[in-house]
Design a protein around this nucleic acid. Structure first.
Lengths: 209, 209
DNA sequence: TAGATTGTTAATCGATTAACAATC
DNA sequence: TAGATTGTTAATCGATTAACAATC
């Protein structure tokens, strides 16, 4: 698995390959050619071969790709063979839904903590952990050692909280707030701006696709 | 607001412009040049001018852009001046969280119905509407006339349900399931594959950004 | 009028697709 | 060996950036 120069566009396509390969694997298919896969996924076979080759030769001439093997390889590139300690920052509706999100634990994202500011929420249980006041983060982070923070708080607290998380040594932030966080050094921010999707949707409906 | 040939890349950037302009507007700034905006947003001024020009000349030479006006114009392009009737299909944790999502109503997305299959959930209230059994969709859709369906159900029911929604005349589907829906004719599908974001996040953490 | 900044065309860059030699 | 299909290079396409004339 030797990386060449891998463009951001390629990385963004990997989860999609991974999802399709999972389905194909579950159908009991053992091998697949770039051509077959391209038909299923509605992309060009050329792109598939080009993309996969960024990470080394997974295929075999005259045969194609071993589904199981390719699935595992992409999973590894995506870091899905690892375990991640995760905390929820903001245990409101969305935070709670994400904490209970099924695919979450299964994919190696283990909830180790949850924080909020509301008295109504603090002390309640969330997927096996007790929700604490955010002020206890400083004391708890060295114990919990979380890798990833899921940020589901109001926009106005986002920037300061992100800075604090960075200071406490978080590696990645999954950002569900409206704010754009300019990622602190060493922290990767993955934005999940739900409202952007909603706007794109409304645009397409209104303009008639 | 005359559309030239507008690329998909441009459309996808509009929500981001919209968000920034909202912030700038709230700061009380009246006019802004492409240069100032480019510094804030960390894109090139050239791209901003190019993008905005797809929809006609919003700016003025020697002056820049009127923030209020540009904000309103982009909102209109995104169809945010309209109202949309929305139904939740799958009133589990995520569905309920989205239904209660603050920015939702505010942006013109009005919940008019919610459907599920679980006896525990049917009959409960969700943001002002009573959750019904999905089998009642056929009877209720002609009454409710929803524009958008938010799909938060298990993957295995996704394809069949999407087909049903299309048959009942839905215009757009906000897809939170793992499944890739090949959009039925006349229906726009906006995918919100949350797990993709999580995979990208894990990749970046593991490979060290 | 002079200065500023857009709208727009041309140049560059990157990403996608096509083609084919290598090889299983 | 012959057929199939990859890995990889070259050609094309589209999107981004630079430049500048138009104009407020």
């Amino acid at each position: 698995v030797t990386d060449k120069k891998v463009s951001k566009a390629v990385i963004k396509r990997l989860p999609r390959y991974y999802r399709y390969l999972q389905t194909i694997k579950n159908e009991g298919i053992v091998r697949i050619s770039s051509m077959e896969l391209s038909t299923r996924m509605n992309v060009t076979a050329s792109q598939i071969r080009q993309d996969l080759n960024c990470f080394g030769g997974f295929g075999q001439q005259g045969y194609g790709y071993n589904v199981e093997q390719l699935y595992a390889a992409i999973g590894e590139i995506l870091g899905l063979d690892k375990q991640y300690k995760t905390v929820i920052i903001g245990a409101g509706n969305l935070g709670r839904a994400l904490a209970n999100y099924a695919g979450f634990e299964r994919r190696g994202f283990n909830l180790v903590g949850a924080f909020d500011v509301s008295d109504d929420i603090i002390g309640t249980m969330l997927n096996g952990v007790e929700v604490m006041h955010i002020d206890r983060a400083d004391e708890m982070f060295p114990v919990l050692k979380p890798d990833i923070a899921i940020l589901t708080i109001p926009q106005r607290y986002a920037a300061a909280t992100a800075a604090k998380l960075a200071r406490l040594g978080i590696k990645g932030i999954w950002n569900f707030t409206h704010a754009e966080l300019n990622a602190p050094e060493g922290v990767y921010v993955e934005d999940a701006h739900l409202s952007d999707g909603l706007m794109t949707l409304s645009h397409h409906i209104t303009s008639g696709k």
